[in-house]
Amino acid sequence: MEKQTDVPLDPVEVRILGVLIEKQMATPDYYPLSLNAMCNACNQRSNREPVMNLDEASVQQAVDRLRNRRLVWQIRTHGSRIAKYRHNLEDVADFSDRELAVLCVLFLRGPQTAGELRQRTVRLAEFHALPAVEHTLQKLAGREEGPFAVQLARRPGQKESRWAHLFAAVEETDAVFDPSAATEEIVLPESGDPVRDPSPVPGRLEILETRVAELETELSDLKAAFLAFRTQFE
């Protein structure tokens, strides 16, 4: 029987998985997500590359495909007519919070350097320093059930190599980095003391944009719940 990850996911399916992980980790009180909330989160303009403009029909079709592959479950709570959805990546592998956070950002923003991933996972999981991110990426790349991540060849003019997830096809223009040819070894600090790292922290504007987008999603979800409640008395 083929694994859920044997057939590459399309961009909409990847976006949906990223959104579900993000909301589970960043705003658990509003997770699982309704179709309306999921559509709004997929189309969010901040923390998304590329920005999408999906309608609910397209999202529903992608959700159905993910359900057929057991990567998403539909949840119905007692007394509610609104179906909600959660991811089922725990059935793929026993991912840690750090691994899920890294996969989430890769799903939402495409290939990135370890430094960019550390900056963009700050709301999802705690990484004391850059080596912790690199260690997590190496774990994803070496997973027995996977691999789930790969290091790409450094592009001309770039100082750092980018990483990509392997739930979708890797861009043909990106040559894959061969870990066996690497001469550097990742060494994690023995103590729990944070290690100084030059990676920038998220700016206040980006944090505010993210929070506004989350509030818009929450408001849409509440509106949908209210309309469903009102129809019970009509």
Rank of each mutant, 00 (worst) to 15 (best):
I21R: 04
D197V: 02
E145P: 12
G192L: 11
S96W: 04
E134M: 10
R86G: 14
E145F: 05
E90I: 14
L100W: 04
E190Q: 14
S199Y: 04
W163E: 00
R98S: 15
V187I: 07
E190M: 15
H78S: 13
K84R: 14
F167I: 00
Q119E: 09
T121M: 03
A129H: 10
I16G: 02
P147G: 02
I75D: 10
S96L: 04
E190R: 15
Y30F: 13
E234D: 15
P8D: 03
V105Q: 07
T183W: 09
L152D: 00
G157S: 05
R48L: 06
L89T: 00
E216G: 13
F167D: 02
G110P: 02
N68G: 13
G192S: 12
V105Y: 07
V212D: 10
Q232L: 14
S180I: 10
Q60M: 13
Q112S: 06
V14I: 04
A181T: 10
L100D: 02
T77D: 15
D6L: 00
Q158L: 09
K84G: 10
S80P: 11
E190D: 11
R118L: 04
E171V: 08
A225R: 13
L35K: 06
S46Q: 09
Q74T: 11
C104F: 03
R118I: 01
Q119T: 10
Q138D: 14
V51W: 06
